[in-house]
């Protein structure tokens, strides 16, 4: 495992920890899109079906279980926890996220590495992950006050994606036969979706003012 991949996984892990910290300690999910969280729960469930068929490493298995468990529990907290769910910005979080799923499924049926159930699900999870952040970005833009934890959560997620792109570049040049167009294209699309957010985040950081996205 190279340094970019490890750093990518760690920023992903930190992003989840930041979100859990907000939910568990402050008992708030204000500014967090349930739609995005539901999409992530579906992304990890469909991608990690290979937990039952392929063993890669202990690290791999543990991380998969963490991402599965945390994404499902975050959705549970936002929907059912009696305190947390009250802070959910339901009226602002109106992105019709299920509309993203059908095109991703059709694309996965058409473009996959092999036409098997696991491979189609795997491709579906990559396409869906690429667009899963959209409801969150839309909610950020609508929420006038973005708190620090929410800003850091999205920043860490974006950093995780950018580090994975570096990881692919590194692997392409150091490993033989390492070519994965589906992963690369959907991963690059996903990373580009964060570009706008990154821009405003660093502007606010540089000017030492509170993060606000233009309407």
């Amino acid at each position: 495992m190279n340094i970019f991949r490890l750093a990518g996984d760690m920023t992903h892990l930190f992003s989840v920890l930041v979100l859990l910290l907000k939910i568990h300690t402050i008992k708030s999910c204000a500014g967090i899109s349930l739609k995005t969280q539901e999409l992530y729960a579906i992304v990890f469930t469909t991608r990690y079906l290979d937990l039952f068929t392929t063993y890669i490493s202990l690290y791999n298995t543990i991380m998969k279980l963490i991402f599965l468990g945390s994404s499902i529990s975050i959705v549970w907290y936002m929907r059912h926890h009696k305190v947390v769910r009250r802070s959910y910005d339901k009226d602002q979080d109106t992105f019709r996220h299920y509309l993203l799923m059908l095109p991703c499924l059709l694309l996965a049926l058409l473009i996959n590495e092999k036409f098997t159930f696991l491979e189609v699900m795997w491709a579906f999870s990559l396409y869906l992950e690429a667009v899963a952040i959209l409801p969150q970005l839309v909610l950020l833009q609508r929420t006038r006050n973005i708190d620090n934890l929410t800003g850091q959560y999205v920043l860490l997620l974006g950093a995780y994606r950018a580090l994975y792109v570096l990881n692919w570049i590194y692997r392409y040049f150091t490993e033989e036969n390492y070519v994965h167009w589906i992963t690369w294209v959907s991963g690059i699309v996903q990373t580009l979706l964060y570009a706008d957010f990154f821009y405003y985040y660093f502007q606010s950081w540089k000017n030492n003012v509170k993060l606000q996205l233009p309407a």
Partner: peptide, 10 residues
């Protein structure tokens, strides 16, 4: 493991 390369990623 050339076929599964990439599937070792999360």
């Amino acid at each position: 493991t050339k076929d599964s390369a990439g599937k070792d990623e999360l």
